[in-house]
Amino acid sequence: MSVEPEVPIVQVEEVRENPVLYKIISSDNHVFTISEHAVKLSKTLWDLITNLGLTAENALDNPIPVENVNGKNMETIVQFCERHKYDEEEPEYTNYIREFVLPEWDRQLLSIDNEELFQLILATNYLDIQKLMDYCCRVIGDMAKDKTPEELRIIYGIPTDAEDDALERSASDSPGPSG
């Protein structure tokens, strides 16, 4: 329903700016290069860079290891951050009921299976990238379109009340640490 945000053309500016680049190493030892503007979208990475005192001069010589994120997810994250690095800041969330449509480029980037999406969210959460988190959640939210409660229950893996009760009973029946 809402207007798709305009994606700025970044390449020209990047050449002009001669940006500072950082190296990131994923948990499975893949190395990624990311620009300063892009890495700033991740609060975790930017805090790390700041705390390590990395500068334009020494950034590329000091790759940042990110042990909680594998290469596949990191690749998506770097692509996303580079794409959105010059986006205007989102207006503060006001608890207003808003409906936005995911831009096509992002929809394609996030057209992955549910297991991959789940892992990407964990990574996004760890790296604290709010915009990517919002977009991933939008993808998951879109799964609810025109679904009945029973379909939603299956799509989101919600146990029935009976299943929950059974789980609770078995948990209370099982011996505790001392038993």
Binding site: N114, F118, N125, G157, I158
Partner: peptide, 11 residues
């Protein structure tokens, strides 16, 4: 199936 309940509460 997307395991919604396995996400952290904020997500």
């Amino acid at each position: 199936m997307f395991p919604l309940l396995l996400l952290d509460p904020i997500s």
